[in-house]
Write a protein that binds this DNA or RNA. Structure first.
Length: 608
RNA sequence: CGGGAUGUAGCGCAGCUUGGUCAGCGCGCCUGCUUUGGGAGCAGGAAGCCGGGAGUUCGAAUCUCCCCAUCCCGACCA
């Protein structure tokens, strides 16, 4: 591929709409262009990166026994009405009508249609297990698309569904996928961490997310620094060891304290001269069947996901000031559990051991002192409903937990029989008895993975692609296009690289070298071969993008007669001897007699 | 969906307060010459229904109203 013929519209300035690094760099380096909010065109370089990621995903899915299929993106409403999600999914579902007025949607996920498929053709235990996957565009009309490819309305996703006879089978499938995901993200050259995750509205029992660690991530990973322990979880799911000892005091009689205008935990505790851990924070939530009060220690936050799961609702919103006033007959800031009349009172387990604590008195400008759980109020439920963050202690080993931001690039779920039961997906076992299929589902955000790779691999000059997913491995830069020697040697190196199975870009533009160097850094080719003044001696420079490590390499003999014996070997070695070695060594070899014109180039370079 | 902001040439922006030499700047793009190891210089050139509509006015990029789009901050998800 020749730069002069290739569509790589690099930009010198950062487009104003791009906030995060991956978005900025993918735009600037000529990988993507926006078509609409949350909808992007993939230019040739991006397309190649995506192809590489998909190739890795396919290899690992196939290795684990997966079978790729194609599913419709346009799906009939009937399927979604049947599963009930046509109404539940809400405005995130892209809906459309055909010319006859029939309803359709653009698939945001494919449970319905794949279950339908399997239901139609699954009869016997002999057909199980079954692992089916697809890699396609998905559509979600996000409330707020943002961060470029991170949260688009159209995105590429791999979905695999597993169908097993029983729990043991599901365990095996889940394990296979977990391992496959680990291999995939390792091969993509990403620093990631599998973490325990909440299974959310998709349901099911066990779930892990694969988080690429990056400060721009929207998620938070809580992890135990003790390598032997290894606990790691999404903050939504993470548990810490509860502080289960209160103050060592006699129970004192409850009394009112006047706290004029003091609404926040900080204000109240400062006024009373006690620590936040002596206060019980009472938050009111509006749930479908009534108001729920959540009680946590003053220095904790309520984990709404845990709360939702506990009380079994999928919608929970903080009560507004009006509801607070109606329920407590007091303004926001003075709510407390004593005498509180709500549908459900849920207390965090830490609250129950507190002694002589402070709470709101459900009366303006008033708090209670010396409130004691059990004596002064009785929650309907006691559970872990707090957010675990830095500084809390690992429930398993007692080390102090830490947290980092992460980008969720994959998630695996054990669904169990949740869907097969409601959709009556069954098979006949050896005894001829009808049994429910046990399912799992496993997703990877392919386009998001590309963005995540950039978030983790860049510097002030541009992208630094991991070799395994780089759109092009090597860029060959003749410094001066008017120097025939340089041009010819560059052509030769370029041809040799292709002959050796290494895809290369020849920057044959009549630009000044600085421009080409800047673009090379921006685009992020792992290796740059510079053909400059030393070309007359048959020498070129090989520069590694990541380390800026440079080596002068003799490529041809003094007379330019025969290729220098070690040239190809060296170039091959020097491009494969650092991160992500899996890819280069797997690239298919090509015949050396083929001309490296663009016509011969594969549209997609398959690995493996 | 709430809150905040922004729409002027391909990209980045100024101009709007105070309507009228106000269609501008930088980069990019095209032509020519020079230059060629980190985003060159000179000369010439193309390019904008000033987001859209309706108003106010002798006159609107500028003032008013409505709409649309985009981006950023909060509850969902890959």
């Amino acid at each position: 591929m020749r730069f002069s013929e290739y569509l790589v519209p690099t930009l010198r300035e950062v487009p104003a709409e791009a906030e995060i690094v991956s978005h900025q760099l993918l735009l600037r380096a000529g990988f993507i262009r926006k078509a609409a909010s949350g909808v992007y065109t993939y230019l040739p370089l991006a397309f190649r990166v995506l192809a590489r990621i998909k190739a890795i995903v396919r290899e690992e899915m196939d290795r684990a026994g997966g079978q790729e299929i194609g599913l419709p993106i346009i799906q009939p409403a009937e399927l979604w009405l049947e599963s009930g999600r046509w109404n539940v999914y809400g405005p995130e579902l892209f809906r459309l009508k055909d010319r006859h007025g029939r309803d359709f949607c653009l698939g945001p996920t494919h449970e319905e249609i794949i279950t339908e498929l399997v239901k139609g053709d699954l009869r016997s235990y002999k057909q199980l297990p079954l692992l089916i996957y697809q890699i396609q565009n998905k559509y979600r009309d996000e409330r707020r698309p943002r961060f470029g490819l991170m949260r688009g309305r159209e995105f590429i996703m791999k979905d695999l569904y597993s169908f097993d006879r029983d729990e043991a089978g599901l365990d095996a499938s889940y394990r296979k996928m977990y391992d496959a995901y680990t291999r995939i993200f390792e091969r993509c050259g990403l620093e990631f961490r599998p973490v325990e995750a909440d299974s959310g509205p998709i349901g099911g029992s066990v779930s892990h997310e694969f988080m690429v660690l990056a400060d721009s991530g929207e998620g938070t990973v809580v992890y135990c620094p003790d390598a032997g322990c290894g606990y790691a979880a999404n903050i939504e799911k993470a548990i810490g060891r509860p502080a289960l000892s209160g103050a060592d005091e006699e129970l004192a009689p409850r009394e009112e304290v006047v706290t004029p205008g003091l609404k926040t935990v900080d204000q109240v505790t400062a006024f009373l001269g006690v620590g936040a851990e002596r206060l019980v924070k009472t938050l009111l939530y509006e749930a479908p069947d009534g108001v729920v009060a959540a009680l946590v220690r003053g220095d904790r936050e309520v984990n709404e996901i845990k709360l939702q799961n506990l009380i079994g609702v999928d919608q929970l919103e903080m009560a507004d000031a009006e509801i607070v006033r109606r329920v407590t007959r007091a303004p926001v800031g003075f709510t407390g559990p004593v005498g509180l009349d709500v549908e459900t009172i849920v207390a965090d387990e830490e609250v129950m051991v507190m002694v002589n604590c402070i709470t709101g008195a459900n009366k303006a400008d008033t708090h209670y002192r010396n409130v004691n759980p059990g004596r002064d109020f009785k929650p309907d439920l006691t559970a872990d409903i707090r957010v675990v963050d830095d500084g809390q202690v690992c429930a398993r080993c007692g080390a102090v937990l830490q947290s980092r931001r992460g980008i969720e690039v994959g998630q695996v779920f054990k669904l169990g029989i949740k869907y097969s039961k409601s959709l009556h997906l069954t098979y006949l076992d050896e005894q001829g008895e009808e049994r429910l299929v046990v399912m799992g589902c496993y997703g990877i955000g392919v386009s998001r993975t590309m963005a995540a790779a950039v978030e983790q691999n860049y510097d002030a000059d541009g992208i630094i692609w991991p070799v395994s997913i780089a759109p092009v491995k090597v860029v060959v830069v003749p410094v001066n296009m008017k120097e025939q020697t340089q041009v010819e040697l560059a052509e030769r190196v370029y041809r040799d690289l292709w002959a050796a199975g290494i895809d290369a870009m020849l920057d044959d533009r009549a630009e000044r070298p600085g421009v080409k160097f800047k673009d090379a850094d921006l685009v992020g080719y792992p290796v740059r071969v510079t053909v400059g003044k030393k070309a007359v001696d048959g020498e070129v420079e090989v520069l590694r993008r990541r380390t800026r490590e440079m080596q002068v390499v003799p490529v041809v003999g003094p007379e330019w007669g025969t290729p220098y014996p070690s040239a190809r070997t060296f170039l091959t070695a020097s491009t494969s001897s650092f991160t992500g070695t899996t890819c280069i060594s797997r690239v298919r070899r090509r015949s050396t007699s083929t001309s490296p014109s663009t016509a011969f180039l594969p549209t997609v370079t398959r690995t493996g």
